[in-house]
Amino acid sequence: MLSPAAARTIRETLPAVGAAIEDITPLFYKKLFTAHPELLRDLFNRGNQANGTQSQALAGSIAAFATALLEHPGTRPDAMLARIAHKHASLGIAPDQYEIVHRHLFAAIAEVLGEAVTAEVAEAWDEVYWLMANALIALERRLYAEAGADGGATWRPYRVVARHQETADVVTFLAAPADGAPVPAAKPGQYVSVRVQLPDGAGQIRQYSLSGQPDGALQFSVKRTVGTPSGEVSNHLHGHVTAGSQLELSAPFGDVTLAEGEGPVLLASAGIGCTPMIGMLAHLAATGSTREVIAVHGDRDQLSHAFRADLDQLVRKLPRARSHVWYERPAGEWPAGRTGLVDVTDLAVPPGTTAYLCGPLPFLRTVRTQLLTAGVRPAAIHYEVFGPDLWLGHTA
C-alpha cells in the first residue's frame, strides 16, 4: 500500500515520530481548536480533551496504522479502521474535515520535529495520513448509506417516552422518533450518539450502548460520571431529561456486534459495560436461541449492578445459559469465590467460543489474557470500551 520510498522513510522515522507524538497531538489540538473553536464546542468531547485521553487515542491510532503498513504491507488494517469509522459515522464526520485535521496535524509535526521534517519525510507521512483518511472516508460513506443517512445526515429528533432508574447512578431512556417514522435497524451490541444542548450553548455528543429492544423506540442507558472533570452530558441527562423531553440521536453504529451462528458465546462485562451485553442477551432470548451462553459480570456491589434482575431473567429464558457475577464489596451474604474482581480462569469455556468484552481497560486486558490462556482464539475475542480507545491497535 505504501510506496517503496515512503515505506523506507516511515521505517526510519517511525521511532522518532512515535517518541514525539504525545507532544505533537496536544499541539495539534491547540492549533485545531484555535482555528475552529466550534469543533471543541460541538463535536469533540471536552472532558476527554481536558484529561488528555483523546490525544492518547489519536497517537495510538496513527502509530498503529503506520506500523501495520510496514509489518503487513499487503493487508489493510480493516479491524482498526472499522472501529474508527463507526465512531466517526456516529458523530456525522464529513470528508472535508479530514483536510482540516491534516492541515493542523502536519503543522504540529513540523513545529515539534523541526528540521528533521525534510520534504521527503513530510511526503512519506502525508502518504500515510491520506491512505488512512481516504480509507476511513470510504468506510464512513458506506456506513452512512447503510443507515439511510447519505451525506452524513445521521441526526434525527427523538422524544423520550420513558425513563427508568436502574440504580442510583444509572438511568435508562426509551426514545422514539419525533416524526413517527420507524425506528432504525440496530444490531445487538451497537450504540447511538446523543447530542444535547448544554447551558453554555455547547452541543456536546456522547455514545451510549443500546441496552434493549423495545418496540418503536431506541433504549440506551447512561451512568452518571463523577470526578474531575465530571460528565457534562451524563449529568445533564440525569438532571434534566424526562419523559417528553426532546433529544437528537444518531443512527445506531458500532463494529462490536453479536455474530449470528450456533457456536457458544461468552459475554463479559464490568460496571456500565453491562449495557451492550444485556442488549445481546435480550436479542438471544427474543430469537429463542439455543446457543450455549456464558454471561460474566463484575461490579462494586449488588446496589450498583445495573440490570441485575434483567440478567437473571434473560439467562433463565435461554435453555443453555449460565451467569457468573463478582462483587468487589458485596452487601450481605455472598460466595467468597465470587468476591473481588472477575476471574474466568476456573470457568469451563467450551471450544469454539466467541467472546465479547466491555468495561474498563484493566478489566479488558485481564479477561482477554485469561481467555487466551483458556484456549479462545485471539480473533474470536471482541471488545468495546467507552470513551477514546486507548487499546486501539494493541490487541491481536
Rank of each mutant, 00 (worst) to 15 (best):
R365D: 15
T395H: 09
T257H: 03
G261M: 05
Y208Q: 06
P184K: 03
K187F: 04
A138R: 11
R142I: 10
E166K: 04
S323V: 07
H283C: 08
V349M: 04
Q246Y: 07
A176G: 00
P351R: 14
L131I: 15
P177D: 14
Q190S: 09
A147T: 09
H236S: 08
T172M: 12
L303I: 02
H238K: 02
G244K: 05
A168G: 13
V233R: 01
T67C: 03
T118Y: 06
E140N: 10
G340I: 01
G201D: 01
V170T: 14
G151C: 02
P319N: 02
G298T: 01
V117R: 04
E140L: 10
A116V: 12
V170K: 08
P335L: 09
I381V: 15
I137T: 10
G332V: 06
A89C: 03
E115N: 11
P319K: 00
Q370K: 03
A19N: 12
K317D: 11
G74A: 13
A380I: 02
A119V: 12
T172A: 14
E38V: 08
R322G: 11
T290Y: 04
I62N: 01
H283W: 14
P95R: 08
G114C: 07
L69K: 02
P199E: 06
V325S: 09
A186T: 13
V170P: 11
V121E: 03
Q49N: 11
G244C: 11
Q204M: 12
I100Y: 06
G273A: 04
R368W: 07
D42I: 02
G74M: 04
I10M: 00
A85F: 05
R338E: 15
Q302S: 09
A16T: 15
L237V: 08
G239F: 06
I24M: 13
R224T: 14
L105W: 10
G148S: 12
R11P: 05
D200Q: 00
E232G: 04
G92V: 03
